[in-house]
Amino acid sequence: MKIKITLLALSVAASPAFAKLADQQGFSGEISINTGVASSTSNFNTDADNNLSSIDQKASSESSFLVAPLGSVAYTFGEKLNHQVYTGTARDDVATGTVVLEVGYKYQLESGMVIDASLLPTIMSGETWADPYNTTSARTKTDETGNAFRLKLSSIAGSPFSLDMAYATKDVEHDDVPDELKRDADTFYLKGQYRQPLSRTMMLIPSIIYQTRDADGKAESYDQIGAEVSLFGTAGRHQYALTAGYNQRDYDAGSSLFNNTKRSDDNINLFAAYEYDQFMDWENWSFISLAGYGTSDSNITFYDESQYIVSVGLNYKF
């Protein structure tokens, strides 16, 4: 679960194996209004106290009220309705707790395979501490920028297998940390998944995930391997998605700040999303809700993190 709580669209869909891109040519989309509570416990949270007394201390928690008007829009075209340009957040991503803004293009082959290429213009952007480890004065904020590109191959050759690949760059404007902790980086992400129907209304999707980051600082470079399983289901107007994931991240080198100890993190993510269609018998409207929790347990206390979110809202499809 990525709680940079910038984007949370909170809608659920259990997609059939060979769904068309759209039922008809032209524009389609949805918009959701969501409210809730989110909390983050992290020494890198720029909404927390800018004073740090010791790099051995645990992070403090910061909670906030969330209001997130979000949505997506797509234009489908072609004789076989197999071309689509879109922008927004993908429903299948949201349902598993990964929410990013995308601008992209999809092409569906005769076999049902979909090639989906996109740009993620906001995922690498934000604020961070110029020196997160500063204990002698108030920490100051700096900007993070970067680009991310994604390629998804769904229902490869008409099979239940899919691949999700991404490449991203990150640049920290004022990175006032020791050389071994420099954060400018290139990251590669690979996720393979298999769709296994359990019944006409239920589907299980296990995934294996690999991620690697090559940063300017060796103590910020890592390899990560993990697994995830999602359960999608429907019952009348009710739709739900449950996701659990685990990954282990091992860093390439230690830092002098932490006695040259190589950092190692164990990450657990739990996520649940729910949708009730035709809420109050309103056509095209649905009630939506989610709850998510993530924790990162590091062998270096400074890097321990946790976050949660609970939200409800309404979604309108057009």
Results as ranks from 00 to 15, higher is better:
residue 208 I to C: 08
residue 231 L to Q: 04
residue 263 R to G: 01
residue 248 Q to G: 06
residue 261 T to K: 14
residue 202 M to H: 10
residue 255 S to F: 02
residue 262 K to A: 12
residue 182 K to I: 05
residue 293 Y to E: 06
residue 293 Y to C: 03
residue 219 A to E: 02
residue 281 D to P: 00
residue 207 S to G: 08
residue 283 E to H: 13
residue 259 N to T: 12
residue 176 D to E: 11
residue 285 W to C: 01
residue 214 D to M: 04
residue 188 F to S: 09
residue 191 K to D: 13
residue 178 P to I: 15
residue 295 T to L: 12
residue 250 D to Q: 14
residue 270 L to K: 08
residue 230 S to L: 04
residue 205 I to K: 00
residue 203 M to F: 07
residue 186 D to W: 02
residue 219 A to N: 03
residue 169 T to P: 11
residue 260 N to R: 14
residue 177 V to N: 06
residue 194 Y to C: 09
residue 228 E to R: 08
residue 300 I to D: 02
residue 272 A to I: 13
residue 238 H to L: 05
residue 200 R to D: 14
residue 285 W to N: 03
residue 296 S to I: 05
residue 172 V to M: 06
residue 228 E to F: 01
residue 294 G to H: 01
residue 204 L to G: 02
residue 180 E to S: 08
residue 185 A to Q: 04
residue 272 A to L: 13
residue 222 Y to L: 14
residue 209 I to L: 12
residue 179 D to N: 09
residue 168 A to W: 10
residue 274 Y to T: 01
residue 232 F to A: 09
residue 251 Y to L: 07
residue 292 G to Y: 00
residue 295 T to E: 15
residue 171 D to F: 08
residue 271 F to E: 01
residue 262 K to V: 13
residue 222 Y to T: 10
residue 217 G to C: 08
residue 217 G to L: 05
residue 220 E to V: 10
residue 254 G to R: 08
residue 242 L to I: 06
residue 179 D to R: 10
residue 177 V to A: 09
residue 192 G to R: 02
residue 198 L to C: 11
residue 239 Q to T: 03
residue 239 Q to M: 07
residue 176 D to N: 13
residue 194 Y to F: 09
residue 186 D to I: 07
residue 175 D to L: 04
residue 172 V to L: 08
residue 250 D to N: 15
residue 200 R to M: 14
residue 264 S to F: 11
residue 267 N to C: 10
residue 199 S to G: 13
residue 213 R to Y: 01
residue 257 L to P: 00
residue 199 S to K: 01
residue 166 A to N: 04
residue 208 I to A: 11
residue 301 T to M: 07
residue 301 T to K: 06
residue 274 Y to M: 03
residue 250 D to T: 15
residue 196 Q to D: 04
residue 229 V to T: 03
